[in-house]
Design a protein around this nucleic acid. Sequence first.
DNA 1: GTACTTCCTG
DNA 2: CAGGAAGTAC
Length: 601
Amino acid sequence: MNLSLPDQSMHGSGEGGLDEDKPEVLLPCFRRNMYEEPLPSTPYSSGSIISQLLRKTLPAKRAMEEGHYYLCSADSGQEDRSSVSSKDSMAEAASPNVSTGASLEGEHPISDHLQAKRARVENIIRVMAGSPTSRPHGDVDKDPYRENKRKQRLPQHQEHNLDVGRKLGRDSSSKDEECHRLKEQLHSMQRLLQQLQEKFLQVYNQEDPDDEMNLDESTDYIRDSLEDTLKEELSRAVGECVDRVFRKMTPTGLDMSPPQRMCSSPDISVERKAIQEPAQSDDTQIKTHSLDYYEESHSPQDQTEALSLVVRKPVVTPLSAPSVKRPFPVHQSPFQFNYSAPLHDSQILEHLLKYGPHSNFLPCMPTAAAMDRGSPDTVDLPWDAIAMRSKVTSGHLGHHPRPSALGPVTVDNLCLPHVKLECAELQGMAERNPYMSLNISFYLNIQEGLTPSHLKKAKLMFFYTRYPSSNVLKTYFPDVKFNRCITSQLIKWFSNFREFFYIQMEKFARQAIVDGVGDVKDITVSRDSELFRALNMHYNKANDFHVPERFLEVAEITLHEFYNAISASKDSDPSWKKAIYKVICKLDSEVPEEFKTSSYL
DNA sequence: GTACTTCCTG
DNA sequence: CAGGAAGTAC
């Protein structure tokens, strides 16, 4: 945010204020290779968890199912392909009707096809729902398959539990180790989720383009159950992690005051709720500072494996399918980055537990961020902003009930501005593949509703465009999960902006006439103008944005239009303004790129 | 119908 | 700023 007043020239050109707000500029050190850290493997990172699960649980269906689940696997993929019809596509060949046993040459291939898809999806859901993490603990070790799965996901943790007795009394370093183990467990969970997504993408991306309708139907069919399952899975894992970090911290002599409510037994349900309702990230820059501080404080060895939830659309054709051995794109997702530095979240958590959410989180945090932003309200941690989401105009902006202290630790605090950079791409993918959109907002902390920050941003955008299309709005609000309602609200905002704009124009034009201004050329709009002050007060109340010169020109042109029309008594025509609107509409200019990635200006 | 807009009201 | 009515355009 440009902190300078319009007349101050901290930045040479008139419209360069935004640069100072970009995280990259704000935090040059943070650009360090967080996306390029080495990716050490974990003992249980190789092979497909899902595939192994399927081997154990669905042996009878393996032949037909693995055709799908192993499309990314060179060995089994080819193996399975050889056993099925070669004429059809892979998807077709591997999609017999599981539930009915209908043959591939059934009389209703489309219907069967759909049912086959559902069956495959249901299988995945069943596997997920049946995973040990979703079951009571007493159930876990009875089932070999589940035990196997648990070993894949929690091997180090179990080992650690066995070691607890020996480690009692010399626990000083165990916290770090525990964090590392928990981190790995989280990564394992993330891999599982990512694999699931890939499996689904494979299933759906192999469908014929003509199969859109079926895809929609089946997507609706499975959406709820799968979404719940996925969220449950990840939420539980994170909650468990926090739980253990917390318990691990407690006996080590940390000053746990005053965490009151979450002291003895963290409320996993609260944690889960916080995760399922990701908080907004208006203050991501502050969080960037926070994490950056730690990022710089620890050695690269702390970096654990990078995993991607940014699921690339698999190129799965009968010819190329088996070429991809491992379904994990190297591409780093913001989500996984949240957990990429083992000590981060534990330290964040530790601090929050000790000092509470409103304390100054880190030594470097408030000063630099706040000064760069020039806005006192940004000094606070995002706690208040969290409660603000979706309540732009509900009249509750003054004070918000403080959300659970644990929620933002794992979600909001760990979401970074870089998330925004990938949102647009992901949303595009999501639009092309309905299923893809299921958990993207969940992972990327995309807003479900518009926030005051979005409103502020929209107002600043108005300086460039008075008539933004919905597509433009979607482009410039990548952190907003658009739906019909949200789009309408944003459009309505700009409608209101225009209304105010035109009212002011008409008012000042009439005033000029009343004042006896005889020539349009005598009417100008400068930054000293009363008109500009009124507009600036409305769209840029904090006066922390340098209004582009072009907007002054547009205002002047508009004022002239009104002046001319009124002077010519055209205002007797009920629709006399329409001509003016048409002119102004053409004066829109492109909104700077910076607006696309700045969730908070 | 849907999307978008202006106008009006609170 | 939001809600609603009414108009326009596709």
